[in-house]
């Protein structure tokens, strides 16, 4: 067992990567507020979850139920990934060639794990859509899906509990941006998701 210093570049180690948030589809689809953290062109873009946490990246596990290829010159794939609470709309284009190749190879239905970046769009009819730009998508088993439901439920409950306690700047912003949403709704959603797992 040998480790090389060259295997461990310092700069990469010091770099803080944005964590991938665990969020159910039912909460993600309520997002209406997106912002950049910093003036820089490379500053990350975040969507603000109604439970009061910013998210630049999410990790979801669900069932890929449908996949379509679109576009000619700028080919891309769209897919629907379903969790116990709703549907995530995922896409992978030529800007993410690795993710596009992965998605192209998967024949639905399959359990999949997706790491991606949430993006908020307003459609021409004025309605909102949160889509997930896929960074990677792999086929997983049902166990992984079940563990993810526990994981997403735990983080959802953590956020709901935090929302009721000391407000962070992001919680204050969520209260301002989502005045009509009561986060205790997501407690119920988490319960229903957990209840769907067979013991």
């Amino acid at each position: 067992m040998s480790t090389n210093p060259h295997d461990m570049p310092r700069r990469e180690g010091a770099f803080e990567r944005e964590p991938a948030r665990r969020v159910f589809a039912a909460e993600l689809r309520e997002c209406r507020y997106q912002f950049k953290d910093g003036e820089d062109e490379k500053s990350p873009t975040f969507v603000l979850l109604p439970s009061g946490e910013r998210s630049n990246r999410i990790f979801i596990v669900g069932t890929l139920t449908e996949k379509t290829r679109q576009g000619e010159q700028n080919m891309f794939y769209r897919g629907r990934v379903v969790d116990p609470t709703g549907t995530f709309f995922v896409m992978a284009g030529s800007y993410q060639p690795e993710a596009m190749q992965q998605l192209a190879k998967i024949e639905p239905p399959q359990f999949v794990a997706v790491i991606g970046k949430p993006n908020l769009y307003q459609k021409p009819d004025g309605s909102w859509l949160v889509s997930v730009r896929v960074e990677s998508i792999t086929v997983v088993d049902m166990d992984t899906r079940d563990i993810w439901v526990l994981d997403a439920a735990k983080h959802t409950l953590d956020r709901v509990d935090a929302f009721a306690k000391e407000p962070t700047p992001d919680i204050l912003k969520a209260k301002e941006q989502y005045p009509t949403i009561d986060p205790s709704l997501f407690r119920k959603i988490a319960y229903d998701a957990l209840a769907q797992i067979k013991i």
């Binding site: 563990i147 735990k154 988490a190 957990l194």
Partner: peptide, 21 residues
Amino acid sequence: KVAFASSDHTALLNRAGGAPS
């Protein structure tokens, strides 16, 4: 590898089903 833990499942169900805040 992490295995599915039914004890975690039960604990989370109790937590989520607990008195709404």
